[in-house]
Simulated scan of single mutants.
Amino acid sequence: MLLASSLKIAAAAAALAGPLAGGAALLSPGVPALPHSVVALAPAEFQYRVAGDVSVAGRPAAAPVRTLRLDRDLTIMTRQVTAAEYATCVAAGACPRIGRGPAADDRPVVGVSHRDAVAYAAWMTRTTGLTHRLPTDQEWVFAAAEKADDEALPVVDRADPARAWLVRYDTEASREKMSAEPQPVGHFGVNAKGLADVAGNVWEWTDTCFVRATLEASGETRATTTNCGVRVVQGRHRTYMTDFIRDPRTGGCAAGAPPANLGFRLVVETAAADRLLAALERTARRLLGPG
């Protein structure tokens, strides 16, 4: 009897919820399912090196490493947005047209700026009814797991910005070289958390602004300058790019070696959908009763 009651409640909730039930995304009537697969990552502790330029008593210092924990599940795309998916947004008049170059439809879209990525996320939000957004740098590091590069870069006095840029460039450029041509989805493998092509040859935009910060005696960092015209970009190394740049090889890299390509993957906010499903289940219980 208990099993039958549970099944009736589940069926009623499914009928009320429509496409939300069974773990699918909360969609508007007649709208197809999400075009991309996602994975839900439960909160856990992880090591995070603070992004941006850090100083102590006015002198450059290595950014500290923190032990962090996300405050809720993180639902994120298992792969980067593809050229075909971005082209659909362009065709709908919702995304800026870009020079796609030789990338095939089944490969990550590259040559996109932060602004282009935000436009695509806004379109996906309108299309699906679920909020899509770029990850923060902290979320990206958490999802990247063992693929996140936590190497501390050489500390160089910012009073000589040209030398600081060159030292960082030399450090990053000395890493293993790989083809800059976008590869088919999955070419660079899957990390421990089920994400494909993390730290391959496509760097990913995050929504984190560039920050200059002071490391206090207490160990806390205090932001002194926040520049949201420059965003954190993540891949084989962390770097910082002007938000309108599409091709990093033409300039706009705020420090170090420019990324080979600029692409992105999105976070999907599921909390609202989860709350709605729970409410529908409670309503079904009231309607059906205990029998």
Rank of each mutant, 00 (worst) to 15 (best):
M77I: 08
S55F: 10
R72G: 13
W203E: 08
A40T: 15
H36G: 09
I9A: 04
A84V: 06
R238D: 07
G99C: 12
F46K: 03
R49D: 07
G252W: 05
G129I: 03
V190A: 10
G30R: 03
A84C: 08
V112D: 07
R72A: 15
P258Y: 10
V31Q: 14
A152E: 07
D247Q: 12
A119G: 04
Y169V: 01
L70N: 10
A159Q: 13
P102A: 12
E216T: 08
G22R: 01
V110R: 02
C95V: 04
D247N: 15
G251A: 08
D137S: 10
G194K: 01
E146L: 04
D53L: 12
E85I: 00
R79C: 05
T171S: 14
L7M: 13
C209W: 02
P35Q: 05
Y169C: 03
A173M: 09
H132D: 01
A152R: 07
A61P: 01
N191C: 04
E139H: 07
T82I: 01
P259C: 07
A152W: 04
Q234L: 12
P182Q: 06
T208Y: 04
A254D: 13
R238L: 07
H36Y: 14
V54S: 09
V185R: 11
A278E: 12
G200Y: 04
G23S: 06
D137E: 10
E181C: 06
E204C: 11
R107G: 00
A145Y: 05
W123D: 10
A254F: 15
A117K: 01
L134R: 07
T270A: 12
G111V: 00
A51D: 15
R59V: 12
V202E: 02
A284K: 00
G22Y: 05
Y240R: 00
L280R: 04
G22I: 00
A62Y: 00
A40M: 08
A199T: 00
A13Y: 02
F188Q: 00
N191H: 02
A24R: 11
D116T: 01
R236Q: 15
A121M: 05
L70Y: 05
P32L: 05
A15V: 13
P96Y: 06
A13L: 06
D170E: 15
T206Y: 06
T128H: 13
A61E: 03
L41G: 06
R49S: 07
K193V: 10
P258F: 11
D157S: 13
V155N: 03
T128P: 06
H114G: 05
Y86I: 00
F46G: 02
A83R: 10
S113E: 04
G229Y: 08
T67M: 12
A104L: 15
G58E: 05
V232G: 08
R222F: 09
A15T: 11
V198A: 09
R168Q: 14
R158A: 12
T250R: 15
V39R: 11
R236E: 15
V112C: 13
W205S: 03
Q138E: 15
V118N: 05
A180V: 10
Y169T: 03
S218C: 04
P290F: 13
S179R: 06
T226R: 14
P154I: 07
T283Q: 15
